[in-house]
């Protein structure tokens, strides 16, 4: 879907988002939209504003200017660090957030998420005893508890080994393809973005520089023929002074 294509169904729309922390401008006039079931990868160098953008979309922070089409309840939020309680069990964490999210049938939602994450056998275990991968799965499950129309993930696979990463992406892509959830995730792994995303959003110094298919990023550089996507991404940023 192209930006501004008003005819296509839209799960999420961000218009002219800006954020300033004092004199520092973390986001500048960011505008994009996401369709239901679409996977958007948000890539960019450190300090580009990826987490700030996701937190504004999730309702954790407010924007200095611009608007977001979502209310916080419509989006599932999966922060980079598992935002769950280590002294509570897997089931207790899911129950707590299901109640706080005011999920209609919270018990059914908990059972569903335990099944989808494959954590039924660990349901009674305290989070503190789980591996990083399993904690991240619970973190993701909390984000999906309220059957959101949009799922926002901040570097969800950053601390996971390849096997755990694969399980995580199975869950995320299933939510997108099976349930039509629009997914926006940030990552530093360009190969991961290429593998899972339908569209890339390249952010640098708070500015949205590119929105399009991964394959088209090569074409957007001057010497595109000899580069892989990561090389093209780096070249793309350098050509634009970043």
């Amino acid at each position: 879907m192209a930006i501004g294509d008003v005819a296509a169904p839209v799960a999420l729309r961000a218009d002219g988002l800006a954020k300033a922390f004092g004199a520092r401008r973390a986001l500048r006039d960011v505008t994009f939209a996401a369709a239901p079931g679409e996977l958007l990868a948000l890539i960019g160098p450190n300090g580009a504003g990826k987490t700030t953008l996701l937190e504004i979309l999730a309702g954790v922070q407010s924007a200095s200017a611009g608007s977001v089409s979502l209310t916080p309840g419509e989006a599932g939020w999966v922060p980079q660090q598992p935002a769950v309680y280590t002294k509570l069990s897997v089931r207790e964490n899911l129950e707590l957030f299901a109640r706080l999210e005011r999920v209609d049938d919270h018990e059914a939602a908990v059972v569903r998420m335990l099944e989808q994450t494959g954590l039924q056998e660990r349901a009674g275990d305290p989070l503190g005893t789980l591996s990083g991968g399993n904690r991240q799965r619970v973190n993701l499950a909390v984000g999906l508890l309220g059957r959101p129309s949009v799922l926002l993930l901040d570097e969800p696979s950053a601390a996971l080994d390849p096997r755990q990463r694969e399980k995580l992406w199975e869950l995320v892509t299933a939510a997108a393809h099976r349930d039509g959830v629009a997914v926006v995730f940030s990552t530093h792994d360009v190969a991961e973005a290429e593998r899972h995303a339908d569209r890339l959003l390249v952010l640098a110094d708070g500015e949205l520089l590119y929105s399009g298919a991964p394959a088209d990023l090569r074409a957007a550089t001057e010497a595109h023929d000899a580069l892989d996507l990561e090389g093209a991404f780096v070249r793309f940023l350098r050509e634009r002074g970043h």
Binding site: A58, W77, P79, L100
Partner: peptide, 13 residues
């Protein structure tokens, strides 16, 4: 410290 603050204040409480 449990990183739950952001998740809680985005509309849950």
């Amino acid at each position: 410290e449990e990183h739950a603050f952001g998740r809680l204040v985005r509309g849950l409480v």
